[in-house]
Design a protein around this nucleic acid. Structure first.
Length: 577
RNA sequence: GCCCUCUUAGCUCAGAGGAUAGAGCGUCUGCCUCCGGAGCAGAAGGUCGCAGGUUCGAAUCCUGCAGAGGGCGCCA
């Protein structure tokens, strides 16, 4: 509809210029938007305002000309075309046109709001936690965020791959192994020095205990190096299994788990490692230099604050060098766009990574989203979390307490660049104060209506809601009854719901473009509110078969879109609660 | 010190350069003989941090200032 109006307005303007009624060098780009205030109609354009100065005419005079042209061309599609305020042209669509959305939704079902296939291959890399401990709540938020962005991009038409980068190489793994080893020795009754930088969380002891229970004191007298090497793999496997289990449990499944170790190991045929090859590629492109025994990347050429070390003077590699190799690998795999979601504490790395990607010949094909942290609140008090003392609410604890739906929904409710205050009590609450229940309740309520309409008891669990929905037929004649009494509460409620349903494709497109799942939580709440308003003012299951069919169809369309919106957030749409 | 992000109702936050800046919570007031009241409707509540600028029009874009958070290692 927007595109159609856009084109039509452009045609009208061009015609007006050709006929000499408006003198313009070029017709400015047309903007059509949905007015905030429903009394301003369904669509509005500011074309007269933006053209006024160049045309040397008062905006309202231009608006008159455009409105006249639109009335001719739109005909019965528009119920009214009015000029308002300083020169806006407001278009009110005919009711029948508004009601078309019901048919469209019920035909397209889950495909409603889907964009055309773009052919773009997009990778979303997220969570990427070090496999040295349980997921924390921030990881949970980034998991929800990355997965939802992936779902939204898929719906918008991209081909998306989800990837988890496992930082399983490097110093932190050694510290991890040494920590487990120390706890193991304690369990064997031989307490010693705990590593200075060791991980002190209780989970380390639990991992050590599992090893102890399996292998008893086998490793008591092994050399520390062989013991730690063995424990590292055991503990790593346990943590990785934890990560996969928790993520799968919340509906997040990765296509690829990419191990950092593969970058350090020898390349094909025993050739240089991926990291060495990555550095070589930067060197061939002329962006590498040696200084004081280290190998540097001249990232300042790409706008970074300072140049960055790739290979230290002692011959070891920086974390950044591995990241360069990793990203080179991503583009070798043919992605048109790579989206990385990083924690807020990594945002100082964005510039250097973008620089490296540009130096590798893929400028602009990396997008880094910075995920902000989560502050947990319970009864109005901050829940302090400290790794040092081991007093931690892990993400798994939180999921156990509030459930997947509430956790995901709350994580996604705020824009990603805002730190999030998470109220545990509210997330658990089964009331209207809790937005996730508010939205799910609307869906369950519709299912209940459908059960009722089938003639069954509303609580009859054996009723197949989808089958009932499929049996509802409502043609143009019936749908024309929707909103037939504008000005009444019932009529306005129906119209408001129709308008909200029609917005969905635009919301998906916007959420995709802005990588902003919270646009969908806002939308879902608006749609639920529009449905509740409709429900309050309109009896759905009425005796008149035509009106009943129309309202059931509208309720069914609402059900489909609510479920779709929740689905893009990774939240379930229950048929009863 | 430099860089990034943020500052909107009492609280938590929405707000593609547009019309009278919105929602939820909290406060106050109404609505159940009726399909799920886990709902609906109304009232009160604002110098959009401050000051300039661009624009027909700025919460939105630009500059400066103030405040909050984060980042600035041959750490990971």
């Amino acid at each position: 509809m927007r595109e159609m109006l856009n084109t039509t307005i452009a045609e009208v303007m061009t015609a007006a210029v050709t006929e000499g009624r408006v003198s313009l060098e070029t017709v400015p780009p047309v903007s059509v938007e949905r007015p905030r205030d429903p009394s301003h109609g369904d669509w509005a354009t500011n074309i007269a305002l933006v053209s006024a100065k160049a045309a040397g005419m008062p905006p309202r005079a231009i608006a008159e000309i455009v409105a006249e042209g639109l009335r001719e061309r739109l005909g019965a599609t528009a119920e009214a075309i009015e000029i308002a305020g300083p020169g806006f042209i407001n278009i009110r669509l005919a009711r029948g046109v508004l009601a078309d959305v019901v048919t469209r939704v019920r035909e397209e079902r889950d495909a409603f709001g889907a964009g055309a296939r773009t052919g773009a291959r997009v990778q979303v890399e997220f969570v990427s936690a070090n496999p040295v401990g349980p997921m924390h709540v921030g990881h949970g938020r980034w998991a929800a965020l990355g997965d939802s962005i992936a779902r939204i991009l898929e719906h918008a038409g991209d081909e998306v791959q989800r990837e988890f980068y496992v930082n399983d190489a490097g110093v932190q793994m050694d510290i991890f192994a040494a920590s487990v080893s120390a706890r193991y020795l304690e369990l064997c009754g031989r307490p010693g020095e705990f590593p200075e930088d060791g991980y002190r969380g209780a989970y380390i002891t639990e991992i050590a205990r599992e090893i102890y229970e399996e292998e008893a004191t086998c490793w008591l007298d092994a050399t520390p190096a062989s013991r730690e090497a063995h424990f590292k793999e055991k503990a790593y496997a346990q943590v990785l299994a934890h990560l996969k289990r928790v993520l799968h449990g919340m509906g997040v499944d990765f296509d690829v788990w990419f191990s950092e170790r593969t970058l350090h190991g020898p390349g094909e045929g025993g050739g240089p490692s991926a990291i060495d090859r990555g550095i070589e590629r930067l060197r061939e492109a002329g962006h590498v230099f040696e200084h004081e025994g280290a190998v540097w990347f001249r990232s300042t050429e790409f706008g970074d604050d300072k140049d960055r070390v790739l290979k230290k003077a002692d011959g070891s590699y920086t974390y950044f060098a591995a990241d360069v190799a990793y990203h080179a690998d991503k583009y070798d795999r043919g992605f048109d766009l790579v989206i990385d979601i990083w924690g807020a504490d990594h945002h100082g790395y964005v510039k250097r990574m973008e620089s490296a990607v540009a130096a590798l010949g893929h400028p602009g094909k990396l997008e880094v989203i910075i995920g902000q942290l989560v502050n947990l609140f319970r009864d109005g008090e901050v829940v302090r979390m400290s790794k040092r003392t081991g007093e931690m609410v892990t993400f798994e604890d939180l999921l156990d307490e509030v459930g997947v739906d509430a956790a995901r929904y709350f994580f996604l409710r705020r824009s990603t660049d805002q730190p999030l205050d998470f109220d545990i009590g509210l997330a658990k609450e089964r009331s209207a104060d809790n937005p996730v229940y508010y939205v799910q309740y609307a869906h369950a309520r519709i299912c209940s209506i459908l059960r009722k309409a089938s003639g069954a008891d509303t609580a009859d669990e054996s009723v197949d809601v989808a089958a009932v929905a499929a049996g509802i037929t409502a043609g143009a004649r019936e749908l024309a009854l929707l909103g037939a009494e504008p000005g009444t509460l019932a009529g306005e409620a129906e119209l408001a719901l129709l308008r909200k349903l029609a917005e969905f494709p635009e919301v998906v497109a916007l959420a995709a473009r802005q990588r902003a799942p919270h646009k969908l939580t806002t939308y879902a709440e608006d749609l639920a509110a529009a449905f509740h308003g409709f429900y309050t003012h309109c009896q759905v299951v009425v005796d008149d078969p035509a009106l009943r069919g129309a309202r059931l169809a509208l309720a069914d369309a609402s059900r489909i879109v609510l479920a779709r919106a929740l689905g893009l957030l990774g939240v379930s749409a229950p048929q009863r609660m």
